[in-house]
Computed example of a mutant assay.
Amino acid sequence: MKQPGLDGRHRDQNGQIRQKNGTTQVGTLREQYGEGFAEGRRSDMHLKTLLEREGASSLSQLLKKGS
């Protein structure tokens, strides 16, 4: 049986936790991180676009930047 990884993500075959895909939509991320995530941004914006516009290289960096 597969065990869930960090934040409900699953681990790859080599044991690493799978990263969020760049095509994940902001609306989906708001379900996990709250309605205040990427406030003022459209819910259908892709994560990769949000990262580019915010000058962040990863979701983790963006979350740290916002706090």
Rank of each mutant, 00 (worst) to 15 (best):
G34H: 01
H10S: 10
M1A: 07
S58D: 04
L62Q: 00
E54G: 05
K64S: 08
L63K: 07
L50S: 01
E31T: 14
S67Q: 04
E52W: 13
K65T: 02
T28N: 13
R53Y: 05
R41M: 12
R18P: 00
H46E: 15
Y33P: 08
E52L: 08
N14H: 09
Q16D: 12
Y33L: 14
R42F: 09
S60V: 14
D44E: 15
E39T: 13
Q3Y: 01
G34T: 06
S58G: 04
Q3W: 02
H46W: 06
L29V: 03
T24P: 01
Q61W: 07
K65F: 06
Q13N: 12
S58P: 05
S67K: 12
A56T: 02
L6S: 15
I17K: 03
Q19K: 14
T23C: 13
Q16G: 14
G8L: 10
G55D: 04
T49C: 02
Q32A: 14
D44R: 05
A56D: 06
L50V: 01
M45I: 05
S67I: 05
T28Q: 15
G55M: 10
H46Y: 06
E54N: 12
A38C: 15
R53G: 07
H46V: 07
D12V: 01
G22H: 10
L59S: 00
R18H: 09
